[in-house]
Design a protein around this nucleic acid. Sequence first.
RNA 1: GCCGGGGUGGCGGAACUGGCAGACGCGGCGGACUUAAAAUCCGCUGGAGCAAUCCUUGUGGGUUCGAGUCCCACUCCCGGCACCA
Length: 820
Amino acid sequence: MIDKYSPQEIEPKWRQRWEKDRLYEVSEDDPKPKYYALTMFPYTSGDLHIGHWYAMAPSDVHARFKRMQGYNVLHPMGFDAFGLPAENAAIKRGIHPFTWTMQNVKNMRRQLRSIGAIYDWSREVVSCLPEYYKWTEWFFLKLYEAGLAYRGKAPVNWCPQCQTVLANEQVLGSGFCERCGAAVIRRDLEQWFFRITRYADELLSFDGIDWPERIQIMQRNWIGRSEGTEISFAIDHSGVPEKEIRVFTTRPDTTFGATFMVFAPEHPLVSVLTTPDRKAEVDAYIDKSRHLSEIERLSTEKEKDGVFIGAYCTNRLNGKKVPIWIADYVLLSYGTGAVMGVPAHDERDFLFARKYGIPIPVVIAPPGWQGEALAQAYIEEGTLVNSGQFNGLPSQQALGAISDFLEEKGWGKRTVSYRLRDWLISRQRYWGAPIPMVYCAKCGIVPVPEKDLPVLLPEDAEFKPTGESPLKYHEQFVNTTCPRCGGPGKRETDTMDTFMCSSWYFLRYTSPNVDDAPFDNAKIKFWMPVDLYTGGAEHAVMHLLYSRFFIKALRDIGLLDFDEPFTRLFNQGTIIAEKQKMSKSRGNVITPDEYVNELGADTVRAYLMFLAPWEQGGEWNDSSISGISRWLNRIWQLVLDSYQPNKKLTPDNAENAERELSRFTHQTIRRVTQDMEKLRFNTMLSALMEFTNYLATVKEAGAVAAPAWQETIDILLRLLAPTAPHITEELWQRTAHPYSIHNQPWPQWDETLARDEEITLVVQVNGKLRDRITVPASVSEDELPQLLQEKAARANAYLQGKKVLKRVYVPGRLINFVVK
RNA sequence: GCCGGGGUGGCGGAACUGGCAGACGCGGCGGACUUAAAAUCCGCUGGAGCAAUCCUUGUGGGUUCGAGUCCCACUCCCGGCACCA
């Protein structure tokens, strides 16, 4: 009698053994080809929920698969440990963010171990430790030296709840804070920025990397490249030195139709151009738009309004004077912060002009246009009218012709505009990497010298719910000496966006313990770039874009020699519960611990992979997981319960059965291997289930000799090892194999052995299935009539007395008779 | 509004390049074992029909010997973007 499958006993036992033997530690001395398999490191929120498992278990399975395939696999784990929740906990419960975070790290390490992954813990990275953030600061200095970090005043997204600024990427489309959901408002602040826009064009290219189309599109849209022309409108205003206003347009072909000019309310020329009689109204409008929240201002439903500032400029193409307005639908940060209003051919301009009685002359005639007024803006192509020497040109051609003309005259220039803004990295919070800068009354902004890094976060900061960083009030932190002149200086009290920490952590895993550099160059050369990066798609335009920028910037600084951090990207879906996304507030969070305790990590791992395609995600279902548990139990029995060949087995029928067994085995190896490569874990597991179902019938019949059986079990266990590392290790040992199964090679399939000898040929009459016959796989078309005559009695009945008009034969699949 | 992705049994999901729709699992039904139940094992399980057979992949059309798969129109769901001139 064999003992029961008891994951509670075998799982901790093997995990301890693997750890003791350092089975999963990796080294650069290994001659095998390297494979860097990376999963996005988790934020130190405190508890590992099933969503973390969904990110980590399948990627571990794939990493284990690559390992068995003979790769030297780096599959590290660490913690994204800076960020607001730690600080909020400090304010709310009086725990220091460091203490709170490290407690969570400790708990999460324990929970992560229960997954049974091949993490090499000797390479763990925790982003809030000084030995890590020293280098985050160092990178800031490098970017600053390279002119890629700058301080600038800009209207920024301010979250009143988090009391900090947010990057554009952290503001949800409707104007809410990505983290807390509060409505974001605008404030003018001096902030630190990274010049990600300098890399806009390079970031548009995904050549040489294998990323999901979806993410590429999202990044391209986010960057928002558009080609157009900057056009100069003349101004002549007493006391104003500027003689022109430049606007950006993608439709220079419509320039003759410009009947007004619109500035963003914050545009610097507004104050100087506004005439005294308009000043009160203009100021009131500017004030109003500043106080609107981002949502209100950006709402497409909001009626377009604006104020005439009293000044005019000249449309140089037709010499006409056009009034200058301000309106908050024009954004200072895009293009030149000013647009020409062409009401006939732009929907917004049309609404604006109609509201204020501005003329709407047609310059692009729609097909069949008879000179009538337009009921709405016509934004399609057409023929130019009312456009001087360009009349009669198709708008496509006019676009180029007018641009050429403007460039010749020096009135315009073709340019490219981007939606992407520079990356705002300042955060008015304590729990982040300090920005290593000093403000000196004499020397201005002075970087902290490298030898003085890290600028440490003071431990004795006081956390009060004032909404301001405790750093600001920490005298010893703030007051310092200027590194340049030695005089009194004040430290920057803002810290860096945590996305800065996550833009380089994957570099640190390669050499986590070097202390005189962020990484060891030789090890970077060995491991980078990451071969497979997996994680949620919610990072599409944040972490994933920032990291690409970061790597390109470091490359240009001379620190790296590759262009892209992640060669292949894969986004897993989301696990939901009770038809809803899991969240603490809904109380539907699935905690893996109880399932691991009851059913075992192997079952939870396999279940997560089986329930749906990985990229799709799906619903956690308590009753479905029992199917996996039952299956592993059946495998336990199948392997351990002794195999008895049938006593009546003759060499002849044993040979047939063994050939069939070997065919099934090799077909299974092929399916499992191919699904593993494609990360199609759900079908990979169904292939293994079909295989075990088949093996059960072979065993029941005792159809093959004992050695053939043993060999098959050996393969089954190896195919299952990445998915269920504990049970397979136990069974491997109990079937008298040397430790460890995880050092065994991945089974290879043989196409010859996997080939079917017989196939089922479908017989159709007029496209309807009428019969199935079993024929040798090698059957030739000439042999078919005979075989059909003998075997396809049912189909033949349908052919009786009919005239065969056509015969379609698809070798290996079907034959279709078209009859009348 | 724009850009993606999707709609297949009671449920999660399979289906190569246009070629047996529903693999695998859950659930359900029936049976074995048991004093009984749980667990386990075996069988059946898209719908209608006694059956032959017919119907069936969101809806409507088309291409084809043949369509879940390709084309057109519509519809619903999910994700992203949303005054970017």
